[in-house]
Each structure stands twice: as C-alpha cells, then as structure tokens.
Simulated scan of single mutants.
Amino acid sequence: MSVTVLYFAVLREAAGVSEEQLPVPGSLSMLYAALQEQYGFKHAQNQLRVACNGAFCDWRYQPVDGDVIAFIPPVSGG
C-alpha cells in the first residue's frame, strides 16, 4: 500500500525528484516531518499548503492507499 508524493518548486529541488512512491503514512504531518528530515526542507509545516488527490485538504486528512499528496510551498512571482 502506497501513496504518491508530488514535490513543487524548492521542495522538488531539495528532494531531487518531482514525485515518489512511499508507504501510506500515519498522517500528513508525520509524512512531512519525515521528508523534512530526509531532504532538509526549510519550510515549516505551517508555511505549506497540502493537497490530496488534486484538491487542497486539511493537514488532519488521513491518507489511504493510492492517494496523491502534494506539498506546496509559498510561491512568489511578478
């Protein structure tokens, strides 16, 4: 059982990949904390948006097998 995690912008640069398959996590917070430790992400959880299956979701969402999870950092532009 797994989820697909998508990375964007600085998170993609830090991870070195745009997506990966990972075991279903206990929670989105636990997943991000593990990835932050593994890849050295600089953004705190409260600085990100999270999306599940193409729609923004709450950090309390419980991931299930087959979910697509995206962590979205703040974006600037002009």
Rank of each mutant, 00 (worst) to 15 (best):
M30L: 15
A9G: 11
V50N: 00
Q47N: 13
F56M: 06
A44D: 07
P63Y: 08
F41W: 03
F8W: 04
S29F: 02
W59Y: 01
F71H: 02
G66H: 06
V17M: 14
P25H: 04
G16I: 07
Y32G: 06
P74L: 04
A55D: 06
F8R: 01
P74T: 03
L22N: 02
P74H: 04
H43F: 14
S76A: 14
V3K: 07
A44Y: 01
A55P: 05
Q36V: 09
N46W: 09
Q45F: 09
D67Q: 10
A15D: 00
V5Q: 01
M1A: 15
A44V: 06
V64A: 15
L11D: 01
G66D: 05
A9L: 10
L48T: 03
L31T: 02
Y61R: 10
V5K: 05
H43R: 12
V75M: 09
A44T: 05
G77N: 04
V64S: 15
V10T: 15
S18Y: 05
L48D: 03
V24R: 07
V24F: 06
F41Q: 02
Y61N: 07
P63R: 05
M30W: 02
L6S: 05
E20H: 13
V17H: 08
W59A: 10
E13T: 09
F8T: 01
M30E: 07
L22E: 00
E37W: 02
V10Q: 08
D67C: 13
E20W: 08
D67L: 13
E13R: 10
Y32D: 00
W59N: 04
P63M: 14
L35K: 02
V24S: 09
Y32H: 03
E20V: 14
G16S: 12
C52F: 10
L31D: 00
A70C: 12
K42M: 08
V75P: 04
Q38G: 11
E20S: 15
Y39V: 08
F56K: 03
T4G: 13
L11I: 08
L48E: 02
P23C: 08
E37F: 10
G77K: 07
F56D: 01
P23R: 09
P74Y: 05
C52E: 02
V68G: 03
A44W: 01
A14Q: 06
K42G: 12
Y7G: 08
P23A: 14
E20A: 15
D58R: 13
D65M: 14
L48H: 04
T4L: 15
Y39G: 10
A70K: 04
S2W: 04
T4Q: 14
V64E: 07
V50H: 03
G54Q: 05
V10F: 10
V5F: 01
A15W: 02
P74F: 07
L28H: 01
C52Q: 07
Q62C: 12
Q47A: 15
P74D: 00
Q21L: 13
Q38V: 11
V10N: 13
I72N: 02
V75S: 11
S2T: 11
F41E: 00
G54K: 08
L22C: 05
A51N: 05
F71G: 03
Q45K: 11
V50I: 14
